[in-house]
Amino acid sequence: MSALFNFQSLLLVILLLICTSTHVHQLFPAILDKNKDGLLGIFWKCARIGERLSPYISLCCVAMAVSIFFGN
């Protein structure tokens, strides 16, 4: 089943995208800062979400891990 048709998998993909973009932006800020527009701007926006909402994102990651561990 594709992640587009399973809501929990879609949320997992979005959380992983936000966390990965934030981590890459902390390591190499110039890569994402020069690509604020266009298709690569999605990663810059995800990095901003991860930086500004980091407590909520981390709580969502913990909740997703618990739900996957206990099997829905």
Rank of each mutant, 00 (worst) to 15 (best):
F69P: 00
D37K: 14
R52Q: 11
N35C: 13
D33K: 11
M64L: 10
H25M: 01
N35V: 10
S58C: 02
M64D: 14
H23N: 14
I14A: 06
L11D: 04
S2I: 10
L40G: 04
G41Y: 08
R48A: 09
V24K: 01
C60V: 10
V66N: 04
I42M: 06
T20I: 15
P55L: 12
V66K: 10
L59P: 01
I42Q: 07
A30I: 07
S67W: 06
R52K: 11
G38F: 11
P29L: 03
P55S: 13
V13N: 06
F69G: 07
Q8Y: 05
N6W: 11
L39M: 12
C19E: 14
T22G: 08
M1H: 07
I14T: 09
L59V: 04
K36A: 08
I18N: 04
P29E: 01
A3Q: 05
N6S: 08
I57Q: 00
N35G: 02
G38V: 08
F7K: 09
L17G: 01
K36Q: 15
S21W: 00
E51N: 07
L32W: 03
K34S: 14
M1N: 08
M64I: 07
D33S: 15
S2V: 01
G71F: 06
S54C: 03
F43E: 02
T22F: 12
K45H: 04
N35W: 05
N72S: 09
V13P: 00
I57M: 06
L4Y: 11
N6T: 13
I68N: 02
L11K: 12
L11Y: 03
S67Q: 11
I31S: 09
V66W: 09
A30T: 09
V13K: 06
I31T: 01
F28Y: 14
V24E: 05
I14P: 00
A47F: 02
L27T: 09
M64F: 08
F7R: 04
Q26A: 07
F43G: 00
M1F: 10
L59A: 13
F28N: 08
A63W: 08
T22R: 07
D37L: 14
C19H: 08
K34R: 12
S67I: 12
I49K: 00
K34V: 15
C46A: 15
F69R: 06
E51H: 04
I49L: 15
I49T: 08
H23G: 00
A63M: 12
P29K: 03
C61N: 03
Q26M: 03
L40E: 01
I31G: 02
N6C: 10
G50M: 00
N72H: 05
G41E: 13
E51Q: 13
L27Y: 06
F70R: 14
I18Q: 05
A3G: 13
A3M: 05
C61S: 11
S58H: 11
S2P: 14
L27V: 09
F28G: 01
F69C: 10
L15P: 02
L10Q: 06
L32R: 04
K36N: 02
H25S: 12
L27C: 12
L53E: 00
T22M: 02
G50L: 13
V13A: 12
F70A: 05
M64V: 05
D33N: 13
W44F: 14
F7H: 10
P55N: 12
